[in-house]
Design a protein around this nucleic acid. Structure first.
Lengths: 255, 255
DNA sequence: CGAAAAGTTGATCTACATCAACGTGCGTGG
DNA sequence: CCACGCACGTTGATGTAGATCAACTTTTCG
């Protein structure tokens, strides 16, 4: 049955959440409802405008989006990368005005939905609510790790850490071609790692000289030696929490 | 009626949440239940141990706590300051192991509670659940602003920004003596702003020379010129979301 | 009172920023 | 199909914010 709710290959969100717990038929129905009415957007499209009223919430179905802040001086700081299956404004829409911006990094498919819908899902499907909360907590853990990176790692380590994180996040939910290629420009990296463009170029070069990465013939970065990159930054993946929901967690919330 | 649930002066959590929406009698009962069985802890006490199984969740009733990460090299990066009325491990306890640590910065009173309890509150009191979620979203916004600070502000701006943020957070929930004194050492500041101890000392001096702050006779920093500090970092308080719950938000979640 | 914690100061070093010029691939329009 | 323009990346020279090292003072507290 093509397009059946059980056919998870069509839903990045379902794929992701089913890694935390078994989804039931009703769960798939709710997810499908959230994802109905997707729109395709070109790279660079602005989904959330900083300092403007927050629009409706959304899910990324395909492509990469970017959440970032614009500072008074005109600088940009990237907060996190929104990969397929990620919510946009799940909490943000609670507020009146957006304190950050979101835009599409690559051409993307985005499903916008009314807050009513997600509230309904939370009420009717506690299991699903738990999985979504768990996922949200994981996203927050990524931001916290970015704080640690910006505060206490140098440019070289920071860079390696970002690459490993993206590689692991990608590989976890969908089997990736090897080697992995990341669709990011040096400008994006600079604004993520808090570095200047020039220094990013030089740091990339050093990683290339060490044989850890390669330039893609297309635009993008090819990861040649993931273990080497991990070694560079002393990568500890605890914060990714790549596990199913622990027994204790499920017990507490399942009524 | 002393100690009555309506006597919010005894509960930092109730004070905070009532700034978002009117609490009803039942809400106060739930809050009181969460806060029963508080423990007093000395400064420096470790509440959550990094890489260990996450214990029970808690609320800070009095005092300041600190959430931080320890990095391989032994460095420490402070994630955020937990002021009275803040939850510890509300989401963290979902996970098996803690990816960060929490300890008391000043002598504190902390109420630990079973996850069952908060789950029950969420089920029975949707209004309260909404207020707590809203509060959590605000805390996350603070962390995101820290990312921006670490990535794109220099030491002087970063410092001023931190001071203003703490001052506003304190003043919002309880009227503060003027001028405000912050109970933080230079070591804590260094690990928050991603700077060395020496450089923190020098930056403090510059702020002192500009007449923006003063050293407390006791330990701590006295804020002399809040507007001056705001000017230094181009402070924009949007991200604090110091508002009541917007109409639209309440409507969506109240059934 | 003594020891440890907290803060200060000066000298030196370096990671990263800034400025400026140049290379390279790619898409659009003539 | 070429030309032009633009986004992206590279390279070298120079400047500087902040780190590091080391010695010292002051405050706090048992």
């Amino acid at each position: 049955m093509i397009g059946s709710p059980y056919d998870t290959t069509y839903s990045a969100l379902a794929i992701k959440l089913s890694q935390y717990l078994e989804l039931e038929y009703e769960d798939h129905r709710h997810i499908a409802a959230l994802e109905s009415g997707a729109r395709s957007l070109p790279a660079g499209a602005e989904l959330v405008k900083q300092n403007a009223p927050y629009g409706s919430a959304a899910v990324v179905l395909e492509g990469w989006c970017l959440r970032y802040k614009l500072l008074p001086g005109g600088d940009r700081q990237v907060i996190n990368f929104l990969l397929p299956g990620t919510f946009i404004g799940l909490h943000g829409t609670l507020f009146e005005t957006a304190d950050h911006a979101v835009s599409a990094l690559t051409p993307s498919r985005i499903a916008f939905f009314d807050s009513q819908k997600i509230a309904q899902t939370f009420r009717e499907r506690p299991r699903l609510a738990l999985a979504i909360s768990w996922d949200h907590a994981r996203e927050e853990a990524l931001i916290i790790e970015r704080v640690a990176s910006l505060g206490r790692r140098d440019a070289y380590e920071r860079f390696a850490h970002l690459l490993v994180e993206l590689a692991l996040r990608l590989a976890w939910r969908t089997p990736q071609q090897n080697p992995i290629t990341l669709p990011i420009t040096q400008a994006v990296i600079a604004d993520t790692l808090g570095l200047s463009l020039v220094h990013v170029s030089r740091t990339i070069q050093r990683l290339r000289d060490e044989g850890l990465i390669e330039n893609s013939s297309q635009r993008g970065i090819v990861l040649r030696d993931l273990d080497g990159l991990k070694a560079v930054c002393g990568y500890d993946e605890t914060y990714l929490h790549r596990t199913r929901l622990p027994e204790k967690t499920r017990k507490v919330f399942e009524n």
